[in-house]
Design a protein around this nucleic acid. Structure first.
Length: 287
DNA sequence: AGATGATCCTGTATGC
DNA sequence: TGCATACAGGATCATC
């Protein structure tokens, strides 16, 4: 499900909810999703106070005592839902949409906190995982498997030009989806960024002009910032930590708009397959 | 090196 | 209604 904007939304809210609270219990219904083991997870969590929650690409990173970190990846359908007390939750007088009841049949992990709050991990397809690591391992993973954060200064035209020089024979969309290029872009925002930069997803990296590469960097930043502002995109299972949908969907330009007209030139948006993923683009203004 | 397809799962949409 | 097929915000692995 979630790409950077969705995970970032969850991260910000979790920091408010979890701040200063201590974990009193951990219940795991799907041991397979926990690494290295349920026993070790419980040992690290129960009794601990969660420090801040950060993010690396699409991973949530819980800072724990004793130089440990909990890496939570939601993959396609993972949800993190916070409930303070029972009953139907309301926000601004309106009932919350998305997740009506927790725990439900897709709740695989429940973490209880002092003060009565509970955090639920739901995941229909069970691709997500909770992985406990020590700080050194996290640093290692972070450096080896992830490129720069797209909204940081480290992700800039110079970096991107140099990186692409090493991958001349790849398709640009495949490169954007690779977390080693830049961490946090997924299928929706890859398509949206390419549309904004007027670059065809199947373009060979080696044939991109420096000006296009520069524009692509700016487009990625712009799209992601905008999507964070709207608290992410929901068309199916994504909800934030209070069970609310993200509101970026109506603002998207191409993703899921195959057969509809391009917002820039009116040409019919095509849907095809690139890098094994459904890919949407305008055949006229993306070259 | 990089593309492709299968794989981990379950739900939903579409077509016959 | 039933049944088959394709596809879904991710990422990894084997194979070509």
């Amino acid at each position: 499900m979630p790409e950077l904007p969705e995970v970032e939304t969850i991260r910000r809210d979790l920091n408010k909810f979890l701040s200063g609270k201590k974990i009193t219990a951990v219940e795991v219904r799907q041991p397979r999703l926990v690494k290295p083991s349920v026993t070790k997870l419980k040992k690290a969590l129960v009794g601990a106070r969660v420090g801040r929650v950060s993010r690396r690409g699409k991973m949530l990173v819980w800072h724990l005592p004793k130089q440990q970190k909990l890496l939570v990846h939601l993959k396609m359908t993972g949800q993190i839902v916070w409930r303070q007390g029972g009953g139907k939750l309301m926000v601004g007088g309106h009932p919350i949409i998305g997740v009506d009841t927790v725990p439900n049949k897709y709740t695989h992990i429940t973490v209880s906190f002092t003060g009565g709050g509970k955090l639920y991990f739901n995941d229909t397809r069970k691709f997500g995982y909770w992985r406990l690591v020590d700080d050194a391992t996290f640093t290692d993973i972070s450096q080896k498997n992830f490129g720069p954060e797209p909204l940081s200064v480290a992700f800039n035209a110079n970096y991107f030009l140099a990186y692409l020089k090493k991958h001349q024979r790849a398709l640009i969309k495949a490169i954007l989806l690779d977390q080693k290029t830049v961490a946090g872009i997924g299928n929706i925002y890859a398509d949206e960024s390419l549309w904004l930069a007027k670059v065809k997803p199947q373009r060979w990296v080696g044939k991109l002009h420096p000006a296009e590469i520069k524009l692509l960097v700016a487009s990625i930043k712009k799209i992601l910032k905008e999507a964070v502002k709207y608290r992410g995109t929901s068309f199916n299972s994504y909800v934030d930590s209070l069970g609310r949908a993200g509101t970026y969907w109506p603002h998207r330009k191409v993703y899921g708009r195959g057969g509809l007209s391009c917002k820039r030139c009116g040409t019919i948006i095509l849907k095809t397959r690139v890098a094994g993923r459904g890919t949407h683009y305008c055949p006229k203004c993306q070259r």
